[in-house]
Amino acid sequence: MLKVDNLHTYHDYLHVLKGIHFELNEGEILAILGSNGAGKSTLLGTLAGVYAPREGNITFKGEDITQDGVQKVVSKGICLVPERRQIFNSISVRDHLLLGAYHRYKRDKKTIQQDYENVIEMFPRLKQMLDRPGGLLSGGEQQMLAIGRGLMARPQVLMLDEPSLGLAPLIVRDIMGILRRLCEEMGTTIILVEQNVKAALKVADRACVLAHGRIEISGTAEELMQDSSIQEAYFGKSKKAKKAT
């Protein structure tokens, strides 16, 4: 569905993505893991059209979208839910969701209202606060709102940048459950960037680890969960400790 080939992205003179290759299959959840500064957000930003890569190709359903800007990428079906939610503090929950369908409001007005009803059914907590400004929501509610806003664009690929950031474990569990439902019930393909490796690997089908702008490890979520370097780096289990257990 989405193919990324030899992607190189720079921020001014800083070479952030150094030859990224991966493919995304339809209907799967791909987790992209890595520590701070690995290039995860830059990767999502490049795929979303926020940053123009200097080299490489991005192909979506056979079409080259490498140099497409954000508006074009959204209209073609790829939507980014950014890091830290990026909520409009003074805009109500209702307007947030309706604005999420901006790219199609001229040609698709009838279905926007239906999609709005579906999204608020999916997030019952948001249904109770439709007139509340986004800035007055809790962190978990804002994350639900950001996801709902993204869904209003009717994306075929939904990309989420660290949706668990700053959230309590129970809320993280709920969010991950919503993502799994989106994938299984609505067929939405998801790219999930996370530092919460355990939560990400529990919900993902496949995963890869980004380090210093390159994909170092990739495989199924189960494989990465068992990988010793992942265990050591993210779960603090050294080989010695593992032998002892």
Binding site: A48, V50, V70, Q71, V74, S75, C79, L80, P82, Q86, I87, F88, N89, S90, I91, D95, L98, L99, G100, Y102, H103, Y105, R149, A153
Partner: peptide, 23 residues
């Protein structure tokens, strides 16, 4: 109005507005 709210969105958070397809 919808367009007016889109303008307001740009005022409040230009980056997030852009991600929704607002120019």
């Amino acid at each position: 109005t919808y367009i007016g709210k889109a303008v307001t969105a740009c005022v409040v958070n230009k980056f997030a507005a852009r991600l929704m397809g607002i120019n």
